[in-house]
């Protein structure tokens, strides 16, 4: 399998805190990788560095062999990396449908702005409809995103980053704050979509049940360092991981 994402010797300090302390990671295309770690281990920072929201103090990020360190979040999306957020970043004053329409129109806009307007308009509607069906958002179509329940907001946030076909999808705690039923329901939908589109996924998660069920490989972070990297079963069985991440010895 070919590598889609590589980070080399990433360091990032926030004053005295080491948020990234020599992070070296390879992600293969079409793989699903979990990222675990206690609060403050540097998980979100890692996603922020990949997407260019934060520039590392040193080290490099490569995407499909190309150096992308310092590329802005906007340019990153043009390369095919999309992300969702721990706190859903959606357009609260718009309906669920408008949220998806905006996402699709931006994606179409920079993908094929040379196309005939009519054609893109038609594909826009199709894209939004498909996305709504896929994530069962139909019943919330005309509701304002700001009023939606948290689970739907999370789902909408993810759906917006999946409206086009990314090459790499980064999910930041897709199930935090949700009930057990909701968690699996959402993850099932997301993983079905991701697998059918053959998208590589890296997702930050606290729930080990989710990690076990949906990932083959897991990275464990601790104090900005990689504590363990391997198959999910291996990593979860490691003593250090049980001690520092899972909190049971």
């Amino acid at each position: 399998m070919s590598l889609i994402l590589t980070t080399k010797n990433i360091f990032k300090n926030f004053e005295a805190i080491k948020a990234a302390d020599n992070i070296n990671v390879d992600i293969e295309s079409n793989s699903t990788v979990g990222l675990i770690g206690s609060n403050g281990a540097g998980k979100t920072t890692f996603l922020n560095i990949i997407t260019g929201y934060i520039t590392p103090d040193s080290g490099e990020v490569y995407f499909e062999g190309r150096r992308i360190t310092g590329t802005t979040p906007r340019q990153i999306t043009h390369l095919g990396i999309y992300r969702s957020f721990q706190i859903p970043q959606i357009f609260d004053s718009m309906t669920a449908e408008q949220n998806l329409t905006i996402s699709a129109s931006i994606a179409i806009g920079h993908q094929a702005n040379k196309q005939h307007l009519r054609a893109s308009e038609r594909s826009l509607i199709t894209l939004v409809k498909n996305s709504m069906d896929q994530f069962q958002l139909g019943e919330y179509r005309t509701q304002l995103a700001g009023n939606l329940p948290e689970g739907v907001r999370k789902l909408l946030d993810i759906a917006m980053s999946l409206v086009m076909k990314p090459k790499l999808l980064l999910l930041d705690e897709p199930t935090s704050g949700l009930s057990a039923d909701e968690k699996f329901n959402i993850m099932d939908m997301v993983m079905t979509a991701v697998r059918s589109k053959k998208i590589a996924v890296l997702f930050v998660e606290h729930d080990m049940e989710i990690i076990k069920k949906y990932t083959d490989r897991t990275l464990a972070f601790y104090n900005g360092q990689i504590l363990a990297d391997g198959t999910t079963n291996e990593v979860l069985a490691k003593k250090e991981v049980r001690e520092h991440v899972l909190g049971n010895v």
Binding site: R74, T77, H78, Y82, R83, Q89, I102, I106, G109
Partner: peptide, 9 residues
């Protein structure tokens, strides 16, 4: 922020 993360300037 989201607009940027969707790819618009």
């Amino acid at each position: 922020l989201r607009v940027e993360y969707l790819g618009a300037n």
